[in-house]
């Protein structure tokens, strides 16, 4: 086998880079802004809707997010959310509807491997790390604050 040395690999990497078309960063950012912004505005609409029903903001958050999650999951099932993601990039992936997509997409695709090893196991193929590291980071931050004697939620006083 012919394996490049580190120096040869570095040179080859620099050489091929000139052939790579640049990523359309500006266009991607504009689309991410529009798609992500729209999803957040829909979330705000749901939030307002539940608050009009008499729920305080804190109580309204959960149901509003759950509706976005349901929409994300449903659009994934209909085969639409991947197209939104192709256009909107992180604008589709970062909102919680994108988290729902990350849960639904692998579960749906591995359905044919059965309900346990297909859907059950694959639900967390992509979303698992998100939950794990969110939890680890939050616990770490909380522990640091407790150790430092800074209790309270750290929000606005």
């Amino acid at each position: 086998m012919v394996q490049a040395s580190r120096e040869q690999a570095r040179r080859y990497q620099a050489f091929v880079r000139q052939y790579h078309p640049p990523r359309p960063v500006l266009r991607n950012c504009v689309l991410a802004f529009l798609v992500g912004g729209t999803i957040c505005a829909i979330g705000q609409g749901l939030l307002n809707l539940f608050m009009v029903q008499g729920l305080p903001l804190k109580e309204a958050t959960g149901p509003a997010l759950a509706v976005l999650v349901a929409m994300g999951a449903l659009l994934t099932g209909l085969g639409v959310y991947d197209d939104i993601g192709r256009i909107g990039g992180m604008g589709a992936a970062l909102p919680i509807s994108g988290f729902a997509n990350a849960i639904t997409a692998p579960a749906l695709e591995f359905k044919r491997e059965g309900y346990v090893f297909g859907i059950g196991q694959r639900l967390f193929q992509i979303a698992g790390p998100v939950v794990v590291y969110g939890m680890v980071a939050a616990v770490a931050m909380a522990t640091i604050r407790i150790v430092l004697g800074l209790t309270g939620t750290g929000g606005a006083p």
Partner: peptide, 26 residues
């Protein structure tokens, strides 16, 4: 932590599972 994240995680598992069970991938 999980109490605060309950709505998000539970709805994602529930709807994710439901959609996966009801739909077929395109």
């Amino acid at each position: 932590g999980l109490t605060a994240a309950a709505w998000g995680i539970t709805s994602a598992i529930l709807f994710g599972w439901l959609v996966a069970a009801l739909f077929n991938p395109k």
